[in-house]
Every structure is written in C-alpha cells, then in structure tokens.
C-alpha cells in the first residue's frame, strides 16, 4: 500500500478539522474493508483519520421506541448487547453473522453503512427497520442514505455519528452467505413495523440494497411466509457473477424472505 499520514483524533471536533484539512483525507472506522482496499491500491489517501479514539461515537442505548447505536460500535459489541437482544434480536443475529470473530471485533456499524458494500449485511437492516442515520450535519432516513453500489448520500465533510433503529413488532434476517467471504450472496431482512411490513434485500442488487414493494404489500396484509407464494422476483437489475446468476439470486430472494418470515414467527 502507498504510505499516508496517520491521524487518530480524540474528539469529533478534531476529526472534523482533520477531515477538512484540504488533503485527500479518508476516514477509517474499523478498517476491515479500508485496509484491504489500501493494500490493493484501490484508494490512495494522503491522510487517514482513524475514528477509533472518538469516544462519543461508541455505545448502545435504548431511547423511547428505538435502539440507538453509535457509529464506531463494533459488530461484536452489537452481537453481545443485552439491550439489542431484548429489543431487536434480528439485529443480534445479523451482527453475529458478519465476517468472522476477528472481523467482528474490529468492524463497525458506521464503517459498514458508509462503505455500502452491495453485499454488506447492515444496509438491509437499516432499510427494513426504517432506521435514521444521524451525521454531524443532519438526519437521513435509510431510504435516502443508501445511493447505489458503494455510494451513499454522505458528503465529503460528513461523519456518521449514530443510527437509530425503531423497534419493530417482529423482524428477522436470513442470509445465504458466500462460504468463503461470508458476505451475503442474498440476504433478506423482513420487519413488521408500525407503518406496515418492510423487506430489504442485500447481496443481490446491481445498485446495492433495495426494498421489495411486492413483498411488502403482501406482508402488510398477512405477515407470513405463505403470503409470498406466487410472487416472483424479476432477475432484471440483479447481480450475475461466478457465485450465482441473476435468476438464481432472484429465486434466492424468495427463499430467504420465507426463511426470515418463519424465523420472525
């Protein structure tokens, strides 16, 4: 990897200052994607700002009807959280299924969603639960935050602070993991929320995470696996690669959605 200047600010203010210092600056959360990306020379920042020293970005709280998770909270912390397990057990399962134990000890929620890998798990949870992302500048609904493969609405001088997940009536996540990488070949998050059913799919879409309106309409009337019988997902707009063709992924979306619904009960 090319060399860079390393910074580890101790406060959000210092992080923002470093971010706006005019150099080609890259923020680092857990580094589980960024460091491999740097090794491959797919990114060449002149300055790296490590957010791990910013204490205010870490932690899990229950606020009213929502679970609020700081951007720098690791997957292992979310997976082990009693609050998360009590309020949104689907999120516990999702966090526990990311990568491997060593990756979960370093990788973070904020890093995952800011990178918006089209096969990452968290984007599906945010979309299906109707989460809100708080940055240093504004609040963004998940539907507005994710903007295509490896793309988000984040501006250059914007840092994700936390994510607020409304507590659903029921929810579950089912992932068909690529066996080597553990990324989702197809992952489906289903949620029964106050505003109706929501279904989000990761791993399958050419433009990253997306919601499935046909499933949501059917599930809003009847939140059960049987409600999805006969609803086909078109292969158009889905990924085709050596791990699975688009029509295979289209089929898997239905299968994983039903598995998630069975798990949600």
């Amino acid at each position: 990897m090319y060399n860079f200047e390393y910074n580890r600010p101790a406060s959000l203010d210092d992080a923002l200052k470093a971010l706006s210092s005019g150099d080609e600056v890259k923020l680092m959360a857990g580094g589980m994607t960024l460091i491999p990306t740097l090794k491959q020379r797919l990114a060449q920042p002149s300055k790296l700002v490590d957010l791990s020293g910013v204490a205010e970005l870490k932690g899990i709280t229950v606020e009213g009807n929502a679970v609020v998770i700081g951007a720098m909270t690791t997957h292992a912390t979310v997976a082990a959280s009693a609050e998360v397990a009590a309020k949104i057990p689907a999120l516990t399962k999702l966090a526990h299924g990311i990568g491997d134990p060593q990756v979960r000890n370093r990788g973070t929620l904020g890093g995952s969603i800011s990178n918006n890998d089209p096969a990452a798990d968290y984007p599906a949870a945010l979309m299906a639960l109707g989460a809100t992302v708080t940055t240093n500048k504004r609040q963004l609904a998940a539907d507005d935050f994710f903007a295509g493969m490896f793309t988000t609405a984040l501006e250059e001088d914007e840092i994700v602070l936390k994510v607020s997940f409304p507590i659903p009536e029921k929810a579950a996540y089912a992932k068909f993991a690529q066996p080597a990488s553990r990324y989702a070949l197809v992952g489906v998050f289903v949620a029964k929320t106050a505003g109706g059913a929501r279904v989000a799919v990761t791993g399958a879409g050419e433009d990253g995470v997306f919601r499935v309106a046909a499933f949501e309409d059917a599930l809003s009337k009847n939140f059960s696996a049987a409600a999805l019988d006969g609803i086909a997902i078109p292969a158009e707009g889905l990924n085709s690669d050596i791990h699975g063709a688009a029509d295979y992924r289209a089929h898997l979306i239905g299968v994983m959605a039903k598995r998630a619904l069975q798990a949600a009960g």
Partner: peptide, 24 residues
Amino acid sequence: SQCGACVVHVDGQSVKSCTILAAQ
C-alpha cells in the same frame, strides 16, 4: 484478512494483525 494465521490479541481481543496498522 481471511486465513487467520496472523491472529494476535490486542487489548484482550483476537484480531487479524495483517489488517490493523501498527499505529492503531
């Protein structure tokens, strides 16, 4: 960061030392 031959413990947590900077 796939094979785990480089796993060490940092502050009591198992991590892959090929995917952490010495500065971190």
